[in-house]
Every structure is written in structure tokens, then in C-alpha cells.
Write a protein that binds this DNA or RNA. Structure first.
Lengths: 219, 219
DNA sequence: TAAAGACCTGAATCATGATTCACTTCTTGC
DNA sequence: GCAAGAAGTGAATCATGATTCAGGTCTTTA
């Protein structure tokens, strides 16, 4: 005498949920997190605002998933490039850094949102996971390199984090300007940036001689 | 027949304004920007909320000044260290990086707020100025080094930005955890971090041989 | 087809915290 | 001491945008 969930309704539910996630992602990629109110997302998904809450317990929960998904996509690409067999440590780092930068510059608004735009604390947590993911990928490459004797021993997690930070910072400059002005980046400038970044990353990794820097700060 | 501003009242006005700025700075340094509502700042300064608006046109204006001031203080110290005469390029970079890190670790909540905590867009703009300041200091050192033939030519602004990003990222990990748990950082860990960071920065700068990395990413 | 239950709708409600403003209190110049 | 005007007060107001919910719609099973 009643209603019960069937494959059909279940599929519909999943599709509706997906629709909402994609709408939210689209909104963020197009105009940034700042523009992604529940109202805007609902309108874009073609549902009422209340419907969003049938699928997600809160705005934070929705955008945590959005960030997780977008970030994972990026991280997968970088991981794939950095994990290819038969490459030197430097080549692996260079490959990872290059796709990271290339993809960020190709999708500046999304990249800015994922990397640096002010967001809800709950979403910020997701962002930290994502950054840690990159760090771990680079750290693993460094560890391989050290084990293979290709590079000298270093504090892998720290150096890996430094690389991630370097990439993010260099890209966020252009990105935040780009986000403000909505202008496409100059392709020459982009290529120059990518080249500089890759060289920086490789240089930071490869150096062989012992640095003899005297520690100089007062306090 | 009237009132006119005198040195005495002017001084009082300036003092009141200063009181508010210091209260706001104290609040940020103690519990982060997230805790710094106008009400909290006013209470800390010992004035009514309305008084804050007699001295600042908006919350954003107040905190823009707070950030400007705190940032400038940090930047001055780094600049001083990085600009000392008679040091090699590597020593200057190392000195700047070391104070940056040391001061951030000594005041983690403030550092997190200045570097990475989500803030008002108007305040975010101030933050970008600040980061650009660091970048420019490092870039100037690099240019000196190149001119003197101490290091090979590089894209100075980009490499300098990468250094700033590396420092910030490595520090924000510990800082955001520290901000969450309010625990003081382990001093051993802090020293290790500083050492790793300084070595990273120097290595990224000093390397002499031409890197021969093949560019490998697909897209 | 009808009852039962899940889903959808979107206007109304809430929460938060910045901002205002009518009123009080202080300073000044005469 | 007093009128004029500046500064301070803090409760009330506003703005924004997330969240709720009473009522309508769609599906399913009998």
C-alpha cells in the first residue's frame, strides 16, 4: 500500500544530486566561489533552493563535495604525470609542475577558487586536504629520487610543500588579477611563467653541492 | 561662540583612533580575523561600537589599516635582513627567509591571519600588496646577484614570488593547525622547518649548471 | 484508481554582524 | 556660565544570504 524507492527513482535522485553538484561547480568555475550562493546554484541547476537541501545538509557540505571533486580531478592529472615510469626525478617534478601550472592558467577562475579564494572554513578544510595531496605526490617523487641516489637527502614533506606553495603563489598573482578583470591571460606570458616555474622547481631539487650558508638572522 | 579643534582634542582623537587600531590588531593576533567583529574590537578598545565608525568609515577600512600596519612591520624586518651590505646573494636570501619564518612561527595566529586566513576582499587587496612587497625585496636581491655575476640570470619576479609562496605554504601548514589547536609549536620542529626552508631557498637560487629538463606534459 | 509516502517549490523565516542615529556628554571660545 | 558644535553611546535597524516548512506534485503499490 505505498511508495518505496525503486531503481528508477533512485537513479533520478542521483541525477538530481549530480545536477546540483555540476551547477555549483560551473558557477565556481565561471564566477568564483563568491558568486556561488545557494540561490545561484539552484537557478543554474533548474531547481528550487529548497531542493538543494534535500540533497545536501548545508551549503558547506555541498561545496566541500564540489571542491573535493574538482581538486581530485586536478590532483589525478598531476599524479599521473609525476608518476610516469622511466623518468628522472627532475623530469617527474617538472612534469607535475608543468601540468599544474598549465591547467591553472587554462582555467584561472576555478584555479583561483581552489587555491586561494576566501571560502567557508569547512571548505577551507577540503582545500588543505587537496594541497596536502599535491605535497604528498611531490614528496613521494623526492623520496624515490633520494632512494635512487639521484638527489641529495632533504626533508621531503617540507620541500614538497615549498614546491606546492611556489606554484600556487606564482599562479595566484596572475589568477587573482585575471579573476578581477576576466581577461584571458596573455599566452606568451603564460608560457614564460610555466618555463620559469618548471626551471625553479627543478633547480630547487637538483642541486648537488653542500650549501655553506651562514645563518644570519638576529631573531 | 563655538568649538574648534585644538591640539589637545586632536591628540585625543589620534589616541582614540590608535587605541582602536591596536585593539583590532590585538584581536587578530590573539584569535584571528574571524574573531574580530566590530563589537569585539570596540569592547577591547573600551569604546562603543559606534565610536569605531567615527574613526573608520567601515570595517574594511579599519582592517585594511590593521593589515597594512602589521604587514609593514614584518616586511621592514625582512627587508632589513635582506638588504645588509657585504653579504652574498645566498646569505641575503637566507637571512630574509629565516626572519620571515622565525617571526611567523613565533606569532602563528597573526601570521596565519596575514598570510592565509579568509578575509574581506578589501583586506585581501592589502594582503596582495604585502606579498608583492616581499616578492620585490627578494627580486631586488636576485637582480643584484645576477648583476654581480653571483647567480645565473632568472626571471626575478617569478622566482621571488615562488620563494614567497614556498615560505608561506610551508608555514601555513603548521600555522593553520596551530591556529586550530592553539598549541605552541614544538621548538625542535620549528628549527628543523626553518633550516629546511632556508636550505630550500638557497638551493633554488644558487644552482649553476644549465638544467636540461625535457618538457613533458601533454596539456 | 486510490492511498501512502517521497519529492519539489519558493516565499517566509532566521542568524549574523555591520552600520546607523537619536540622544547624551564633553570642549571650546566668548 | 553658556551656546555651539564635536565626540561618544549602544540599542535599533539593515543587508545578505542560508535555511526552513506548509502545501502542492509526482511515483509506487495494491
Amino acid at each position: 500500500m505505498a511508495y518505496r524507492s525503486t531503481p528508477r527513482t533512485e537513479a533520478r535522485r542521483v541525477a538530481a544530486r549530480e545536477q546540483i553538484v555540476l551547477a555549483a561547480l560551473g558557477q565556481v568555475a565561471e564566477d568564483g566561489y563568491g558568486s556561488a550562493s545557494i540561490g545561484a546554484v539552484a537557478a543554474r541547476a533548474g531547481v528550487a533552493t529548497g531542493t538543494v537541501y534535500r540533497h545536501f545538509s548545508s551549503k558547506a557540505a555541498l561545496f566541500a563535495e564540489v571542491f573535493r571533486r574538482a581538486s581530485q580531478r586536478e590532483l589525478d592529472v598531476v599524479t599521473e604525470l609525476a608518476d610516469r615510469r622511466g623518468l628522472s626525478t627532475a623530469e617527474r617534478i617538472a612534469g607535475g609542475a608543468e601540468v599544474f601550472a598549465r591547467r591553472a592558467l587554462a582555467n584561472p577562475v576555478l584555479a583561483y577558487a581552489l587555491l586561494a579564494e576566501p571560502v567557508d572554513p569547512a571548505v577551507e578544510a577540503e582545500r588543505l586536504v587537496f594541497r596536502r595531496g599535491y605535497r604528498d605526490v611531490f614528496a613521494a617523487v623526492l623520496e624515490d629520487g633520494i632512494r635512487a641516489g639521484e638527489i641529495e637527502p632533504v626533508d621531503c614533506p617540507t620541500v614538497a610543500a615549498a614546491l606546492v606553495g611556489a606554484l600556487a603563489e606564482v599562479l595566484v598573482g596572475p589568477l587573482s588579477e585575471g579573476a578581477a578583470s576576466h581577461r584571458a591571460a596573455d599566452p606568451h606570458r603564460s608560457e614564460a611563467l610555466i618555463t620559469s616555474l618548471v626551471q625553479f622547481a627543478v633547480k630547487a631539487i637538483k642541486h648537488e653541492e653542500e650549501p655553506d650558508v651562514r645563518r644570519t638572522a638576529h631573531a
